[in-house]
Design a binder for these strands. Structure first.
Lengths: 130, 130
DNA sequence: TCCACTCGGTTGCAAAATGAAACTGACGGG
DNA sequence: CCCGTCAGTTTCATTTTGCAACCGAGTGGA
């Protein structure tokens, strides 16, 4: 703690949005849910997130404790970005968003079963697939 | 129809974020869930949303079909902003965000029961309080 | 009539965030 | 040596944010 993070209020809704209320953060979480982990994985996503924004978001998410870095190579240091429990628990938010889109936005493809049936615990490393 | 709205991709997650992926839109939805309806109601909310941003968001939400205007006075025309079915269906998203905050952010107050037990249908006008 | 006040915005402006694109540094392969 | 990959960083123009002041149409006294 002593995050230095400031929240607009003590409201749980507003506070959550202070952390994930932007157009990219949950897109990165979505990619992680589907197995993306490296900088390049995210940069290659369908929405073409700008690389500077991506670097910035990964930094904020790490500071916020949504994500942790795991070094997979040294010289130069390279990291895999993995969801923490805090980050994995955003799964219901992502699921709710995708169900809403499926119900109300005509142009989207249906949320994959892998997304709808996932559970936060599935998203954390240490437990490979069953 | 012919929304002029452009989405980054056909992904349901990214598309939902194209509409509600900012720090204010879902705060306004939250206030509506608790009965706020007029411009002044929203402006007086705890987070002190700037009035120009508020006007802009209410316009976008109206265009996006999340909200509709109901005139409650003429000369000068004044409107109540009410959730449509599309907007009310964002309730699960708001609920998921508040549960996440309750679980992971120490400083927030607990989500009110009124929020957690609400259902989208409760939020639509025509049904005054029981 | 004059003054104060409310409500629902709009406007101006500075600061911050975004995004496109080029650049960097440390490798690895041939 | 040259090319390519990976993971960022830098530069810079464009947008978006947010503060604060202003405005028009009315209402309520005194």
């Amino acid at each position: 703690m002593t995050d230095s993070m400031t929240f607009r209020s003590d409201c749980p809704v507003a506070s959550a949005l202070d952390l994930v209320g932007d157009r990219w953060t949950l897109v990165i979480v979505r990619d992680m849910i589907f197995g993306a982990a490296t900088f390049g994985d995210f940069a290659r996503g369908a929405e073409r997130i700008p690389r500077n924004i991506l670097a910035n978001r990964l930094r904020r998410m790490t500071v916020a404790g949504l994500v942790r870095q795991e070094k997979y190579q040294a010289r130069p240091d390279r990291f895999r970005y993995l969801l923490t429990a805090k980050g994995a628990d955003l799964l219901p938010v992502v699921q709710a968003l995708s169900l809403w889109s499926a119900a109300h936005l005509g142009h989207v493809y249906p949320p994959p079963d892998a997304l709808l049936q996932a559970q936060p615990a599935d998203l954390m490393p240490g437990k490979p697939d069953a």
